[in-house]
Nucleic acid binder design. Structure first.
Length: 577
RNA sequence: CGGGGUGUGGCUCAGUCUGGCUAGAGCGCUGCGUUCGGGACGCAGAGGCCGGAGGUUCAAAUCCUCUCACCCCGACCA
């Protein structure tokens, strides 16, 4: 490709709205343009990268017996009504009506569509297991798109769905899919991706893993043990907290004027936050059901754990009126004397296993000292569970190694769905005994554009992205410096045709711009190998070879250049096998 | 959905508070010339209903009302 004809200009200044590195470089390098909030067009350079990522995805999916299909973007609402998700999912699902007033939607994920396919095509245990996948457009009407391709509304996703005769077979396949994902992220050049246990949320099913590209701009918080033995999303992470019991002391009511927060109360009573208990009121956003959570003062309630435990889809902080209606005093709420009727009470292990805590007195300006769970509240009608948020430095459950918080981008997600969809939608097969059974399903997703952005987040310098050769838009770039000088243009053209003939993908900067101008553009395009044809070196029979991401360049004999590049490119690919 | 902010050539912005000349700058773009190894320079050009609609005024990018769009923080996120 000749640069003089390449569509997609590079920008000298950072676009004002781009905050993350990948967003800035994708715009500045001329890889993509925004068309509307969270909706982007890919320019030729971006599309070339995406096509290469997709090819790697196909290879890895095919390697685990995947069969590529293509399902529609526009789906009838009735299909989603079968699974129940038409009602459950909120405004992110874009709904509309066709000319006959028939309710339709834009697919945000394709469990329903693939079940529709599987239940008509697969009828016998002899056809199982089977895996179907597609690389296709998804639409999610995000409340807030951000970060360019990191979180957008329309995006390309590789989504795969597997069907099995039983849970055991699913689990075996799930392991293979997990390994395929590890391969994919290595091959596209993400050098720091961890798979972690995750909350399966509305997808249903129990076991799920997220693949997280560790990057500061990430939206997810993940918990990693320093020795690598524990990895989990902070939403479900736990730790080997140690609590100690002491001799119980008598309950004592104390005056704590104006002291509301844990810190204020603890300081006022010359205690530490871990000597206190914290009471937090939540309510079901839909039904209003009140939930009373008690946890030690030095912990924070993990709302995702609480939601999973109480099976409430959406929790919010309870308002003061609701709290008062339940007979409690906001700010001084107490587990002592609480009316257990009509309130879901959840007590964290930290409170159950500690002694003599300071808690509210359910009366303004008063607290109790020496609260002990068994004696003062009791386990009857109380849920005892781990609802604590892991803190930096907490000990891992595996080895006790300190846990650390990191930020990351969710680049892949795999679920063991079970029969959540197949049972609801009649996706059955006949087993050996002629008995109709629901298929056991798994699903496996990777966002293609997000993967491209994440590669940048892990491979860049102050000048631009540094593409791994496996997904670089081109393998070699030729910069013809001052092409009017004798020999420059001829030599560059010769390299261009010879390298292209050798099967290499070459971007040829034939524009005759100033050297610095071309170098800066080349850095933004981030191609691994760069040949610089200039008068100075040409007089010596030499060509400069610069490897993107390396500081120094080297001189190569003209006669050896083509052969050397072929070898270097081949060797570079080997690194990603 | 809360809170904050921004809309002026392709891009980044000034001008708005305090209304008034032909609406500006840098980058980019076109032509000519000089340059030529890390974003050169000169000359000459093209390109704007100042987000939109109403209003106030002799006069509106600027003041008022309404509206739309976008960004950031939070909530949400299969």
């Amino acid at each position: 490709m000749r640069m003089s004809k390449l569509v997609g200009r590079r920008l000298k200044e950072d676009p004002k709205d781009a905050k993350t590195v990948s967003h800035q470089y994708l715009l500045r390098g001329g890889y993509m343009r925004m068309v509307s909030t969270g909706i982007y067009s890919l320019l030729p350079l971006g599309q070339r990268i995406v096509a290469k990522i997709e090819e790697i995805l196909r290879e890895e999916m095919n390697a685990i017996e995947g069969q590529e299909v293509l399902m529609p973007v526009v789906l009838p609402a009735e299909l989603w009504e079968e699974s129940g998700r038409y009602q459950v999912v909120g405004a992110e699902l874009l709904r509309f009506k066709d000319r006959n007033e028939k309710p339709m939607l834009l697919g945000m994920t394709h469990e329903e569509a693939v079940v529709h396919m599987a239940r008509t095509e697969i009828t016998s245990y002899k056809q199982l297991p089977a895996m179907l996948y597609q690389i296709q457009t998804k639409y999610r009407d995000e409340a807030r798109a951000r970060g360019g391709l990191i979180r957008c509304r329309e995006f390309t996703m590789k989504d795969a769905y597997s069907f099995h005769v039983n849970q055991e077979d699913l689990e075996k396949y799930y392991e293979r899919a997990h390994q395929a994902y590890v391969n994919i992220f290595r091959r596209v050049g993400m050098n720091n991706v961890v798979s972690i246990e995750a909350n399966s949320g509305m997808m249903g099913g129990k076991v799920s893993h997220e693949f997280i590209a560790v990057a500061d701009c990430g939206e997810d918080t993940i918990i990693l043990a320093e020795d690598g033995t524990y990895r989990a999303n902070c939403e479900i992470a736990t730790a080997a907290w140690l609590f100690t019991k002491e001799a119980e002391q008598a309950l004592e009511k104390v005056h704590t004027p104006g002291k509301k927060t844990i810190e204020e109360v603890a300081e006022f009573l010359a205690a530490k936050p871990e000597n206190t208990g914290k009471a937090v009121f939540y309510q079901d956003a839909k039904t209003g059901q009140l939930v009373f959570a008690v946890i030690r003062g030095d912990f924070e309630v993990n709302e995702v754990k609480l939601q999973n435990l109480t099976k409430i889809a959406e929790l919010k902080f309870a308002d003061d009126a609701t709290i008062k209606a339940a007979g409690c005093e906001p700010g001084y709420a107490s587990p002592i004397g609480i009316n257990k009727k009509n309130i879901v009470i959840v007590v964290d292990r930290s409170v159950v296993e500690s002694s003599n805590l300071i808690v509210g007195a359910n009366e303004a300006d008063y607290h109790y000292k020496n609260f002990n769970f068994e004696r003062d509240l009791g386990a009857a009608d109380v849920l005892i569970a781990d609802i604590a948020t892991v803190r930096d430095g907490d000990p891992a459950t595996t080895t006790g190694a300190p846990l650390r918080l990191s930020r990351g981008i969710e680049v892949g997600n795999i679920f063991q769905l079970g029969t959540r969809y197949s049972a609801a939608m009649g996706c059955n097969y006949l087993d050996q005994n002629g008995k109709s059974m629901p298929m056991v399903m798994g699903c496996y997703g990777i966002g293609v554009g997000r993967a491209m952005a994440s590669v940048i987040e892990q491979n860049f310098d102050e000048y631009g992205p540094i593409w791994p050769i496996t997904i670089a838009p081109y393998e070699v770039q030729i910069c013809a410096l001052d092409p009017k000088k004798p020999g420059i243009s001829e030599t560059s053209e010769k390299f261009y045709s010879e390298l292209t003939a050798a099967g290499l993908e070459v971007l040829y900067d034939d524009r005759g711009e100033k050297a610095g101008f071309m170098f800066n553009d080349a850095d933004l395009i981030g191609i691994p190998f760069r040949l610089i044809v200039g008068a100075r070196n040409l007089a010596e029979g030499k060509i400069e070879l610069k490897i993107r991401g390396e500081k120094d360049s080297r001189l190569v004999d003209i006669s050896e250049t083509v052969e050397l590049i072929k070898q270097l490119v081949a060797a570079e690919y080997e690194k990603f096998r």
